[in-house]
Each structure stands twice: as C-alpha cells, then as structure tokens.
Design a protein around this nucleic acid. Structure first.
Lengths: 179, 179
DNA sequence: CTAGAATCGGAACGCGTGTTCCGGGTGGGC
DNA sequence: GCCCACCCGGAACACGCGTTCCGATTCTAG
C-alpha cells in the first residue's frame, strides 16, 4: 500500500469519526471529504460504500466498549459494574451520534447489529442478578429496550449531565431488586 | 370556500395522517398526494409548506391527547391516572411516527413544542405526587426525558405490546415512591 | 532519474426531495 | 345555461445526496 494512500485512509477515518459523531448516519460523504482535506473519490477507494465507512467506525467503537465491559465483568461489585456500564453507554450516546443510529438500526434485527456488545452486556446482567443487585424478572429484551431508549433520548435531545444522572437514577431504581 | 376544495382538504389531511404515521417527518409530499388521489399543487394550495401540513396534524393529535389528560386529571385515583396517561402516550408513539418526531424536535427547545401537553402532564404529575403515588424528587425535566425516551425507543424499534409493558413496568417502579 | 502504475481530486450522473408555475378544467352566483 | 373566478394536476426547477469516472498528479521500484 502506497504511503500517501495510507495517510489519507487515516485522515478519512479521523474526519469520519468527527462528522459522524456530530451528524449521525445523515452525515454526507462530501462533509467527511472536506474535513479530511480529500476528494470524495479518495474515500471510495478505501471504503466501497458509505455504509462500509460507517460500519468500520462503529465496529471499532463497539469493540472498545466490549473490552471495557469485559474489564468491568471481572472487577469487584457486580451491581456497581452493571450500572456503571449502563451509564457509560448512555454517556457515549450523547456525543457519538452514529453509535446511537447504528444501535437503533440494530434493534430491529436482533441477529445483526452488535452481537459483540450483546454478550458482555448479558454477562454483566446475570452477574448483577446473581448478586441480588438487579431484579431477576428483567431479561435481555427489556434491558436492551431501556438502554436503547436512554441512548436515543440522550442523543436526540441533548441531555445535559445533570438531567442524564437524574433520569438514569429513576431507571436504575426500577431495575434494582424490589423489597 | 369551494366545495371541491373543502373535499380535497379533508382528503389531504386523511392521507397525511396515514402516511405520516407510517413514515414520520421523512414522508414525502408526493406520497401524501398520491394516497389522497390529488396533485401536489393541491396540497400547497391549502398548506404553504410541508412543515405546516405536519404541524396541523400534530397539533390536532396533541389537542386530543390534552383533552384525554384533562379527563384523567379529574377522575379518581391520581396515581392510576398518571401512569395510564404515560402508557397511553407511549402506545400512541408506536403507531404515530410523526408524533414522536415532533416530540423529539420539541424537546430541544422547552419553550416551543407542545405547551398544550406540558400543562396537563404537569397537573397529572403533581396530583400523583401529592397522593404519594410518585416520588417527590422527580420534576418535569426528568419526567419528560423519560417519556421521550420511551416514545423514541418504542417507535424506532417497534416495541411489541408485551415488551412495552415490561419495559414500562421497570420505569414505573422507578417512578413510584421509594420505601 | 525515469518510467509506469497506483492514487488523487472533483466534475458529472442519476435519483429523490420540497416547492413553484401555469394551461386546462370545474363550481356556483346570476 | 353561462361565464369567470377559482382550483386542479403534474411537469418543471433547484438542490443535495451517494456514487462513478477519468485526466492530472504523485509515489516508488529499478
């Protein structure tokens, strides 16, 4: 691979990360190209389609989040780990618009989407339930529904940190084991 | 106003209601015109812009929901009324895509949007809190955030009724007065 | 240094959108 | 029944999108 091609690939990925975080899936290829200081043709040399570029970025973010989840799953308090990761994903959603778009698109088809994230989340959930920190009658469908809801709203409405914490506090209380 | 114009106005509103419920704000004027059996020019004779057509429909739905809220606010159990209305709005969101789009757009600017709905909701909230059915430390911002979140997710991910009930059950438990 | 191939930039294409415009029809007061 | 003001339909326009294409440019092997 030629040196300039490699450099441009990096520039495109960096620019796409920024533009997609701001505008989500609606971001245009021209915007990415302009920010990267590159022609649109250069992008298409590296990524066959707009979708491919987006998936490359989403996959990378997903992988990093999954790693973080795995770390938390090994740590001490299962309940704390579960709620921490929930809040972490919602916080990501506030600034990374693509991530939410991809997540909501993935919700429609459970088979596609982010199986890399589904696994770690399920681990955190069952651990927290065994520890008695989360009520046992919620399953993955309900959890993913609540998680997606929080992410969608946090992103589309621009929840400020204070509001986010107060809203999540209510959901978390609902998720805890009821007396 | 001529008779045919009046008839066409009704057709356009009916068609727009259906198309907007299905496709949300992304619905095209051509789709509305085709379903109404009308030319696009006919729509623009009645509504100066796409936004105006949408707002006419959303305003109508909002008014009807506000009426329903007012009825509930006069009824018996304040807690039951509050949670019933919450669930009712989320159920509407599942089938009326425009409503969710408008709601999420309105959420950004609290002053604009649906003040007609804000009032009745606040009434239901404070009544339920005075009756001890809802914890006193949640205000309108948190409530609207949770409501929007549920509506967004229910619509974008097509929550089936069972999942909707189970997800809302968690949120409602979080909203109830904690022991 | 040079030749050849790989890459770049951005004009161009096809498509779908919201909106405008106007020639051809139609309703209803007289 | 007539006539004109009003209204209708849908072609046309401007724009932005994803994607393709090709002449100009730049890298690198020998």
């Amino acid at each position: 691979m030629r040196a300039d091609a490699q450099r441009n690939r990096a520039r495109v990925l960096e620019a796409a990360e920024e533009v997609l975080a701001r505008d989500g899936l609606a971001a245009s290829m021209r915007a990415v190209a302009e920010l990267a200081g590159v022609g649109v043709g250069t992008i298409y040399r590296q990524f066959p389609t707009k979708e491919a570029l987006y998936q490359a970025i989403v996959a990378d973010r997903t992988r990093r989040l999954a790693e973080r989840a795995a770390e938390l799953a090994e740590g001490g308090d299962p309940g704390r780990a579960f709620f921490t990761f929930f809040a972490m994903i919602v916080e990501h959603a506030t600034t990374k618009k693509v991530f939410v778009d991809a997540l909501s698109a993935a919700g429609v088809d459970p088979k596609a989407g982010s199986p890399d994230l589904r696994g770690p989340i399920e681990t955190l959930l069952v651990r927290a339930q065994h520890a008695g920190a989360v009520r046992p009658d919620v399953g993955m469908p309900e959890l993913l529904a609540l998680l997606s809801a929080a992410c969608l709203a946090a992103q589309q409405q621009g929840w400020d940190p204070g509001l986010r914490d107060r809203a999540l506090a209510v959901v978390f209380d609902g998720l805890r084991t009821q007396p």
